[in-house]
Amino acid sequence: VGRKPSRIVQAGLVQCPEGRKLFPEMSVRKNLLLGAYVHRGDPKTSQHILERVFEMFPVLRMKKDDPAGSLSGGQQQMVAIGRALMGRPRVLLLDEPSLGLAPLIVKQVLEAVKAINEAGTTVLLAEQNAYAALQIAHRAYVMESGKIVMEGDRDTLLGDERIRKAYIGA
Protein backbone atom coordinates (compact mmCIF):
# COMPACT_ATOMS: atom_id res chain seq x y z
CA VAL A 1 0.00 0.00 0.00
CA GLY A 2 1.37 3.37 -0.99
CA ARG A 3 4.32 1.95 -2.94
CA LYS A 4 5.34 3.34 -6.30
CA PRO A 5 4.60 0.98 -9.20
CA SER A 6 8.31 0.77 -10.00
CA ARG A 7 9.02 -0.45 -6.44
CA ILE A 8 6.28 -3.07 -6.73
CA VAL A 9 7.80 -4.35 -9.98
CA GLN A 10 11.29 -4.33 -8.45
CA ALA A 11 9.88 -6.42 -5.60
CA GLY A 12 8.83 -9.04 -8.19
CA LEU A 13 5.09 -8.41 -8.65
CA VAL A 14 3.97 -7.61 -12.21
CA GLN A 15 0.44 -7.27 -13.58
CA CYS A 16 -0.69 -7.93 -17.13
CA PRO A 17 -4.00 -6.04 -17.30
CA GLU A 18 -7.22 -6.97 -19.03
CA GLY A 19 -7.46 -5.24 -22.37
CA ARG A 20 -3.70 -5.38 -23.03
CA LYS A 21 -3.07 -1.60 -22.69
CA LEU A 22 -0.44 -1.46 -25.44
CA PHE A 23 0.89 1.67 -27.12
CA PRO A 24 -0.56 1.01 -30.60
CA GLU A 25 1.71 3.35 -32.57
CA MET A 26 4.91 2.07 -30.96
CA SER A 27 6.70 -0.97 -32.32
CA VAL A 28 6.29 -4.37 -30.73
CA ARG A 29 9.93 -4.21 -29.58
CA LYS A 30 9.48 -0.83 -27.88
CA ASN A 31 6.27 -2.01 -26.19
CA LEU A 32 8.16 -5.01 -24.85
CA LEU A 33 11.12 -2.96 -23.66
CA LEU A 34 8.79 -0.69 -21.66
CA GLY A 35 8.28 -3.67 -19.38
CA ALA A 36 12.01 -3.64 -18.58
CA TYR A 37 11.94 -0.03 -17.43
CA VAL A 38 12.91 -0.88 -13.85
CA HIS A 39 15.95 -2.74 -15.23
CA ARG A 40 16.98 0.05 -17.62
CA GLY A 41 20.42 0.25 -16.05
CA ASP A 42 21.15 -3.29 -17.21
CA PRO A 43 20.65 -3.45 -21.01
CA LYS A 44 22.38 -6.84 -21.28
CA THR A 45 19.78 -8.43 -18.98
CA SER A 46 16.95 -6.66 -20.80
CA GLN A 47 18.22 -8.03 -24.12
CA HIS A 48 18.46 -11.53 -22.64
CA ILE A 49 14.86 -11.37 -21.39
CA LEU A 50 13.71 -9.98 -24.75
CA GLU A 51 15.28 -12.99 -26.45
CA ARG A 52 13.40 -15.31 -24.08
CA VAL A 53 10.13 -13.53 -24.92
CA PHE A 54 10.87 -13.96 -28.64
CA GLU A 55 11.56 -17.67 -28.05
CA MET A 56 8.23 -18.03 -26.26
CA PHE A 57 6.33 -16.04 -28.91
CA PRO A 58 8.25 -16.44 -32.22
CA VAL A 59 5.71 -14.40 -34.17
CA LEU A 60 6.73 -11.34 -32.13
CA ARG A 61 10.31 -11.59 -33.39
CA MET A 62 8.99 -11.48 -36.95
CA LYS A 63 6.81 -8.47 -36.14
CA LYS A 64 9.17 -6.66 -33.75
CA ASP A 65 9.31 -3.51 -35.91
CA ASP A 66 5.58 -3.40 -36.66
CA PRO A 67 3.27 -1.07 -34.71
CA ALA A 68 1.66 -3.03 -31.89
CA GLY A 69 -1.75 -1.75 -32.99
CA SER A 70 -1.40 -3.55 -36.34
CA LEU A 71 -1.27 -7.00 -34.71
CA SER A 72 -4.15 -9.42 -34.24
CA GLY A 73 -5.79 -9.59 -30.82
CA GLY A 74 -3.90 -12.77 -29.96
CA GLN A 75 -0.58 -11.29 -31.00
CA GLN A 76 -1.34 -8.18 -28.94
CA GLN A 77 -2.01 -10.42 -25.93
CA MET A 78 1.37 -12.06 -26.50
CA VAL A 79 2.98 -8.59 -26.47
CA ALA A 80 1.17 -7.73 -23.23
CA ILE A 81 2.34 -10.94 -21.55
CA GLY A 82 5.84 -10.48 -22.97
CA ARG A 83 5.96 -6.92 -21.66
CA ALA A 84 5.01 -8.19 -18.20
CA LEU A 85 7.77 -10.82 -18.38
CA MET A 86 10.30 -8.11 -19.19
CA GLY A 87 9.93 -6.96 -15.57
CA ARG A 88 11.33 -10.34 -14.42
CA PRO A 89 8.40 -11.12 -12.12
CA ARG A 90 8.45 -13.64 -9.34
CA VAL A 91 4.64 -13.31 -9.28
CA LEU A 92 2.72 -12.56 -12.48
CA LEU A 93 -0.89 -11.38 -12.22
CA LEU A 94 -2.84 -12.10 -15.41
CA ASP A 95 -6.28 -10.55 -15.80
CA GLU A 96 -8.46 -12.26 -18.43
CA PRO A 97 -5.72 -13.18 -20.91
CA SER A 98 -8.17 -15.13 -23.11
CA LEU A 99 -10.73 -12.34 -23.41
CA GLY A 100 -11.87 -11.91 -27.00
CA LEU A 101 -9.45 -14.45 -28.46
CA ALA A 102 -10.19 -17.28 -30.86
CA PRO A 103 -10.07 -20.77 -29.28
CA LEU A 104 -6.81 -21.73 -31.02
CA ILE A 105 -5.13 -18.54 -29.79
CA VAL A 106 -6.52 -19.09 -26.27
CA LYS A 107 -4.81 -22.47 -26.30
CA GLN A 108 -1.48 -20.95 -27.42
CA VAL A 109 -1.64 -18.17 -24.83
CA LEU A 110 -2.51 -20.55 -21.99
CA GLU A 111 0.26 -22.95 -23.03
CA ALA A 112 2.64 -19.99 -22.72
CA VAL A 113 1.21 -19.20 -19.27
CA LYS A 114 1.80 -22.80 -18.24
CA ALA A 115 5.40 -22.62 -19.51
CA ILE A 116 5.95 -19.39 -17.58
CA ASN A 117 4.79 -21.11 -14.41
CA GLU A 118 6.88 -24.22 -15.09
CA ALA A 119 9.93 -21.96 -15.50
CA GLY A 120 9.48 -20.81 -11.90
CA THR A 121 7.18 -17.79 -11.97
CA THR A 122 4.11 -17.93 -9.77
CA VAL A 123 1.05 -17.03 -11.84
CA LEU A 124 -2.20 -15.71 -10.42
CA LEU A 125 -4.77 -16.00 -13.19
CA ALA A 126 -8.16 -14.26 -13.16
CA GLU A 127 -10.11 -15.94 -15.95
CA GLN A 128 -13.77 -16.37 -16.83
CA ASN A 129 -13.03 -19.29 -19.15
CA ALA A 130 -13.16 -21.79 -16.30
CA TYR A 131 -12.40 -24.85 -18.40
CA ALA A 132 -9.31 -23.28 -19.99
CA ALA A 133 -8.07 -21.97 -16.64
CA LEU A 134 -8.53 -25.33 -14.93
CA GLN A 135 -6.49 -27.04 -17.65
CA ILE A 136 -3.35 -25.23 -16.44
CA ALA A 137 -4.13 -24.38 -12.81
CA HIS A 138 -2.70 -26.13 -9.79
CA ARG A 139 -5.29 -24.61 -7.47
CA ALA A 140 -8.44 -22.63 -8.20
CA TYR A 141 -10.93 -20.43 -6.44
CA VAL A 142 -14.44 -19.91 -7.78
CA MET A 143 -15.92 -16.52 -7.06
CA GLU A 144 -19.52 -15.37 -7.33
CA SER A 145 -20.49 -11.79 -6.57
CA GLY A 146 -17.06 -11.14 -5.09
CA LYS A 147 -17.14 -14.08 -2.68
CA ILE A 148 -15.20 -17.33 -2.85
CA VAL A 149 -17.79 -20.10 -3.13
CA MET A 150 -15.51 -23.03 -3.91
CA GLU A 151 -11.83 -23.83 -3.87
CA GLY A 152 -9.63 -26.79 -4.52
CA ASP A 153 -7.05 -28.35 -6.74
CA ARG A 154 -7.63 -28.66 -10.48
CA ASP A 155 -8.75 -32.28 -10.45
CA THR A 156 -11.19 -31.78 -7.59
CA LEU A 157 -12.85 -28.83 -9.29
CA LEU A 158 -12.87 -30.41 -12.75
CA GLY A 159 -14.57 -33.45 -11.22
CA ASP A 160 -17.15 -31.45 -9.26
CA GLU A 161 -20.56 -31.74 -10.91
CA ARG A 162 -21.60 -28.24 -9.78
CA ILE A 163 -18.55 -26.71 -11.45
CA ARG A 164 -19.08 -28.75 -14.60
CA LYS A 165 -22.71 -27.64 -14.91
CA ALA A 166 -22.31 -24.01 -13.91
CA TYR A 167 -18.98 -23.07 -15.51
CA ILE A 168 -17.88 -25.65 -18.00
CA GLY A 169 -21.19 -26.57 -19.57
CA ALA A 170 -20.63 -30.31 -19.40
Rank of each mutant, 00 (worst) to 15 (best):
I136N: 03
A112S: 15
L34T: 12
E118N: 07
M78S: 14
V149S: 05
T156P: 00
D42A: 13
V79N: 07
A137F: 01
L94W: 02
L134H: 04
I81N: 12
L32R: 07
A140P: 06
S27N: 11
L85M: 15
G120I: 09
V59W: 02
K30E: 15
L158T: 02
V79A: 08
S27M: 12
M150N: 03
Q108E: 15
V53C: 13
I49H: 09
D65Y: 06
D155S: 08
L85K: 09
L92G: 05
N129H: 09
F54E: 14
I136Y: 04
A130H: 06
G152C: 05
L60T: 02
R40L: 12
V109R: 06
V142S: 00
V79H: 10
F54L: 07
V106A: 13
F54P: 12
L60W: 03
Q75V: 08
R61A: 15
V149K: 07
A119N: 14
R61V: 01
Y131A: 14
L94N: 07
A112D: 01
L33D: 03
K63T: 08
N31H: 13
P103W: 04
G120D: 05
T156C: 02
A115T: 11
R90W: 00
L33M: 14
I81W: 13
S46E: 15
A132T: 03
S27F: 11
E151P: 00
E55G: 10
A68I: 15
E127G: 05
I148R: 08
K147I: 12
T121R: 00
V53K: 11
G152L: 01
I116E: 05
A112I: 02
D153F: 01
E111W: 02
I116H: 05
K64S: 15
L110Q: 04
S72W: 09
A112P: 03
M143W: 01
P89G: 06
A130I: 04
R139H: 14
A112W: 03
I148Y: 03
I105T: 08
R29C: 06
M150P: 00
L104R: 11
H138N: 11
K107M: 03
K107I: 01
R139N: 10
M150F: 10
P43Y: 04
N117L: 02
Q77P: 11
L85I: 09
R40C: 02
A102D: 00
V28A: 10
G120Y: 06
L158S: 02
G120R: 05
Q76C: 11
M78C: 11
V38M: 10
Q135G: 04
G100N: 06
L94F: 08
M150D: 04
T45C: 06
K30S: 12
S98E: 06
L34Y: 09
P103E: 08
A130D: 07
L104D: 02
V109L: 12
K107E: 15
L93E: 09
G41M: 08
P67S: 07
S72Y: 13
